[in-house]
Computed example of a mutant assay.
Amino acid sequence: MIAMIGAAIAPGIAILSYFYLRDSLEPEPISMVIRSFVFGMLLVIPIMVLQYIMQNEWNWQGGLVADVVQSAVVEEFFKWMVIFFTAYKHVEFDEPYDGIVYAVAVSLGFATLENLFYLIINGLNIAFWRALLPVSSHALFAVWMGYYLGRAKFSNSRKKERTFLWLSIALPIGLHALYNAIFLSVQNWIVVIVPFMLLLWWQGLKKVQRAHEYSSKKLSSRPQ
């Protein structure tokens, strides 16, 4: 059981540590990051209950549209809501890169507890693939979410803020939906998912670099 718990939490902690340590300008309080991670974990049960109701009470079973709504829309929307109300409005969210830190923390909290449940049900033999695909994909969807939340928070007009807020929820849902569609619609999915994940990492790291540059400009413009 200890090995299973370790295998479930290690990928999330490792990926979160990477994105947290990239915040070299003005790192967030570790207590805030842990809090966001815990909030993400707390989302798992209500989301699972809602998905169960959608599948069994509302009879939304099977099909690409049902899967997209139950997984991509529900999960990314609730993660976005938690980030918006617990981090976006917080005083510690004081530079653009912070959006990525908090979004990744919430998403990996969710992915880590979800991963533990999957390993308990299916065993340790799937731990490597769970770390490589679902856990890391949750983090990468969160990079896009956090990047645009950071742009929204420090935009210079209400119109730009609304646009970036819209992008911060729409793009992660779209990426998550595409990720799910690959598994549902492509017979030899491994041929497609590998380049898709590589593209996600490449674009995600570019977003990290851009957010870091925006943060550097933001901090340098502060009164001394």
Rank of each mutant, 00 (worst) to 15 (best):
K217D: 07
D94Q: 01
Q209M: 03
E161I: 00
F85G: 03
G62M: 10
R22P: 10
K89T: 14
M32C: 12
Y148P: 12
V106C: 01
A7I: 02
P96C: 09
T112M: 09
S36D: 12
L200S: 06
W201T: 06
E75D: 11
V33M: 10
F37S: 10
M48Q: 11
L184Q: 05
A72C: 03
S215K: 11
E213S: 06
A152H: 09
P195I: 02
L198V: 05
L108V: 05
G62N: 08
K79S: 10
G174A: 15
V194L: 14
R35T: 12
S107M: 01
K153T: 01
S157N: 09
R222G: 08
N59F: 15
P46A: 06
P134V: 07
D94Y: 00
A105K: 06
F84C: 08
Q209G: 14
S155W: 07
L116F: 09
S107I: 01
A72Y: 06
S24I: 11
L21V: 03
F164Q: 15
S17V: 14
S216A: 13
S136T: 12
L198H: 02
I182W: 02
N115Y: 04
I15S: 02
R162I: 08
Y52E: 14
G109K: 06
I169G: 04
M197G: 10
E75Y: 07
L178T: 09
L43H: 10
F196Y: 12
Q55A: 15
E26A: 15
A177Y: 11
V135Y: 02
I83Q: 15
R130Y: 12
I5R: 02
S216Q: 05
L25D: 12
A103R: 03
W60L: 14
F141H: 04
V192C: 13
P96Y: 08
F110H: 10
S221M: 07
I9T: 01
I169L: 15
L171W: 04
Y214E: 12
K89D: 09
T86V: 04
P172E: 01
A211Q: 06
W189S: 13
L133F: 15
S155C: 08
W60V: 00
A170Q: 04
N180H: 01
Q51N: 03
V104K: 14
F84W: 07
P96M: 10
L119T: 09
Q61W: 07
N115F: 06
Q70M: 05
V44E: 13
L205R: 11
G12L: 07
M145H: 11
Y52A: 11
N125S: 13
G204D: 05
M197L: 08
S71D: 04
Q209I: 00
V101K: 08
I100G: 03
I182A: 14
V106Y: 03
E92D: 12
M32L: 14
K159P: 01
V65Q: 09
N156L: 14
E95S: 01
I9R: 01
N56K: 04
A139C: 04
N125K: 14
E57Q: 14
I169S: 14
V69L: 12
K159V: 13
F77D: 00
V33H: 11
F37H: 03
I45L: 15
A3Y: 11
G12R: 05
F117K: 08
V106L: 03
R162C: 00
Y118P: 00
F84T: 02
A3F: 10
Y102G: 07
W129A: 02
M197R: 08
A10Y: 09
S155I: 12
